[in-house]
């Protein structure tokens, strides 16, 4: 123990808490690692395997690119339709789930439940569920994307509704407008930017989601990707990956543009 002790930034208690937490972290990490039963020979050969894969992928199959145009368009369709459906459905859910517009406690609980349940189930699981219900195809994909997005959209729209300026609502009421007119004139303009922002942002996310639901047969480019991988057509795989990259960047650009357009 030297005088350096006085330099310590933390109180002894804080230090003990930190040590305990660090220890817990280490224990959790070790326990987790052991629970995974990783075979170390696989781990060791992983880098070579990856290099091998990359070598087999290059160069991309250029001729194949025309074949993937239509699944790519389908992917965008799924994202657009799914988002449109989600946005429509999330308006009533948001009205239920916002403290200032909810009709009663039960409605609020229902709204909150829909929001958290739909968000907690990944899009691929929703896709499986809808494939069970409707059989494989785009329809299952659209519904999966839509249902998964309801919670996200409703949550953000509900937050926007909670933040509206009540003064504007009162002013319109004071002119003798009825409640529908008040909603159109005083509430809608206030949540419009959030609404557009949420829709386009979610559409952007949904484009990514639409690229993978094909793995379980719910349409889009994922079907092609899955097939190419299963038949070890690695050059095609690279072509598809590049196409996905392109479409993802495209959607990011479009969504950013639209959000800038609506203030």
């Amino acid at each position: 123990m030297t005088d350096y002790e006085t330099w310590e930034r933390r109180t002894p208690r804080q230090r003990i808490v930190r040590y305990v937490l660090t220890l817990l972290l280490v224990v959790a990490a070790v326990a987790s690692w052991r629970a995974l039963n990783v075979r170390y020979n696989y781990l060791g050969s992983a880098p070579t395997e990856f290099m091998d894969l990359v070598n087999r992928m290059y160069p991309p199959a250029v001729g194949y690119s025309t074949e993937i145009v239509s699944p790519l368009i389908e992917t965008v369709h799924i994202a657009v339709l799914g988002t449109a459906l989600a946005v429509m459905l999330s308006v009533p859910v948001a009205l239920l789930g916002a403290t200032n517009t909810t009709p009663n406690k039960l409605g609020f609980a229902v709204g909150k439940f829909i929001i958290s349940f739909t968000r907690s189930v990944n899009v691929i699981i929703w896709a499986l569920v809808f494939v069970i219900i409707f059989g494989s195809g785009t329809l299952a994909g659209v519904l999966a994307v839509a249902v998964r997005s309801i919670g996200f959209c409703s949550k953000l729209i509900a937050e926007a509704i909670e933040e509206i300026d009540p003064g504007q609502v009162e002013a319109i009421k004071a002119t003798g407008a009825n409640s529908v007119e008040t909603a159109i004139y005083a509430i809608a303009p206030q949540i419009k930017p959030a609404f557009i922002g949420v829709s386009t942002y979610r559409w952007d996310i949904n484009v990514r989601a639409s690229t993978i639901i094909g793995f379980v047969g719910a349409g889009g480019i994922g079907v092609e990707l899955n097939t190419a991988i299963n038949f070890f057509q690695w050059q095609r795989v690279l072509t598809i990956l590049l196409a996905i990259l392109g479409i993802v960047i495209f959607s990011e650009f479009v969504s950013a543009y639209l959000r800038r357009k609506v203030r």
């Binding site: 995974l36 990856f50 091998d52 894969l53 990514r208 793995f215 996905i244």
Partner: peptide
């Protein structure tokens, strides 16, 4: 840019089925 499942499916092809690929 890529969804976790796309990355996962490729890793699975490289290192084989199992938790290692997931990690």
């Amino acid at each position: 840019a890529f969804h976790e499942l796309i990355i996962a499916i490729i890793v699975v092809k490289a290192v084989g089925i199992g938790a290692l690929a997931g990690v």
